[in-house]
């Protein structure tokens, strides 16, 4: 059906991401993939290990931002690039699961750009034509 799982939105000074899902779980996975796709050539990533990934939030939007903040920290702070997201538990206030991927290797991986942070500005999850749509803005 129709559109791809995620796309990049054009902003003057930053980058917006839009992603879709039939449910919250798919939405979160696609959001995570959209973020990593912005950061790195995902095709070149291997699934070498899984690390714990968890986040909390006062509502689903805050949770979404916090979940993406955590993924970005793993990449920027620990050099761990996520290829696959496994969800153990997800409701509107809590995410727990695993991030599968590998440590950055300058020989094999190409980082597309520096992503400074995932912002709360305009973060939204809405329902559209029977599926969920999310949007966030990244500071680059």
């Amino acid at each position: 059906m129709g559109h791809p799982p995620f796309r990049t939105l054009d902003h003057t000074a930053d980058i917006g991401l839009e992603f879709y899902g039939k449910d919250l779980a798919e939405l979160f996975k696609n959001a995570g993939n959209a973020l990593m796709d912005c950061l790195v050539e995902r095709k070149g990533l291997s699934l070498k290990e899984y690390r714990n990934l968890s986040a909390e939030g006062g509502d689903s939007e805050e949770l979404l931002v916090n979940f993406l903040r955590e993924l970005l920290y793993m990449a920027n702070g620990q050099g761990f690039l996520t290829k696959h997201i496994k969800i153990d538990h997800l409701d509107e206030r809590m995410f727990s699961g695993m991030a599968g991927g590998e440590i950055f290797d300058a020989e094999r991986h190409y980082l597309k750009m520096e992503l400074k942070a995932v912002t709360y500005h305009g973060a939204i999850i809405s329902e559209e034509k029977g599926q969920l749509k999310g949007r966030i803005i990244i500071d680059v």
Partner: peptide, 28 residues
């Protein structure tokens, strides 16, 4: 980046306990 990110998250989390409204969460 990390300092800003973490303090912003803390302040967003506490927004309900503030005595003023925020027109945008990023203004936390």
């Amino acid at each position: 980046y990390q300092v800003c990110d973490e303090y912003l998250a803390r302040m967003v989390k506490k927004r309900q306990t503030r005595d003023f409204d925020l027109p945008d969460r990023q203004l936390a």
